[in-house]
Simulated assay, not measured.
Amino acid sequence: MAFITPTQLFTGYQLLGSGEAAPAEGVFVPLTSLTNLTAGEANTSTGDARKVLFELCRTAFNAYAAMDAAARPSRMTITRATPTGVDASKVRQGYTITFDLDVSNADVAAES
């Protein structure tokens, strides 16, 4: 089984300490927003990329599901599959994120 770090999934990934300046323009998600992710699990060189990605998916799904259906974007969906058993001590959880893309530039299509 291969162990992967967050930098293997996200080029330039860094875990910033409180009050630490961002090294470049970027996207910032406070660790406190990912309630089941610890600083150790998110560590740049020793953290678990699978845990980081799972918590991003789980958090996005929960926020999306909490939205009133009329407030959700029509050109993006996030779904979560029913967990399936792997063995007596594990289940497998799947998330699907879909986007309608504009064929002229293969980017997210405008909502209107």
Rank of each mutant, 00 (worst) to 15 (best):
E41F: 05
L15M: 08
G47Q: 10
S33G: 08
Q14I: 07
P23F: 14
V29C: 05
N43W: 05
R58I: 01
T46D: 08
T35S: 13
Q14E: 15
P30Q: 06
K51M: 14
F28M: 05
S33L: 06
V29A: 05
A39Q: 04
V29G: 03
T35A: 09
A63C: 03
P30H: 08
F28D: 00
T35W: 04
R50S: 07
N36T: 14
A60H: 04
L31Q: 06
G40M: 04
A24N: 09
G26Y: 15
A39V: 11
F54R: 14
S33E: 12
A21W: 01
T32F: 11
F54W: 15
L56M: 11
D48Y: 11
A21D: 04
L15T: 08
L37D: 03
S18V: 13
K51H: 11
K51I: 14
A21T: 14
F54A: 11
E41T: 05
D48L: 12
A39F: 06
A22Q: 09
G19N: 04
L31N: 02
N43G: 01
L34R: 07
P30W: 03
R50W: 10
S33K: 12
R50A: 07
C57M: 15
L16P: 01
E41Y: 07
C57N: 09
E25C: 01
A63W: 12
F54H: 14
G19C: 05
L15Q: 04
F28N: 02
E41P: 01
T38E: 01
L37C: 04
V27T: 14
G47N: 07
T32Q: 04
G19Q: 08
A24P: 00
Q14Y: 05
T38M: 10
L34D: 05
L31K: 10
F28R: 10
V27C: 02
A42H: 08
V29N: 03
E20A: 14
P30K: 04
V52L: 14
A21K: 12
V29W: 11
G40C: 04
S45E: 13
Q14P: 00
G19A: 08
S18T: 15
F61Q: 05
G26E: 08
L15P: 03
T46L: 13
N36A: 09
E25R: 12
G19Y: 11
G26C: 10
F61K: 11
A63Q: 11
Q14L: 14
T32I: 07
T59K: 10
T35G: 03
N36G: 01
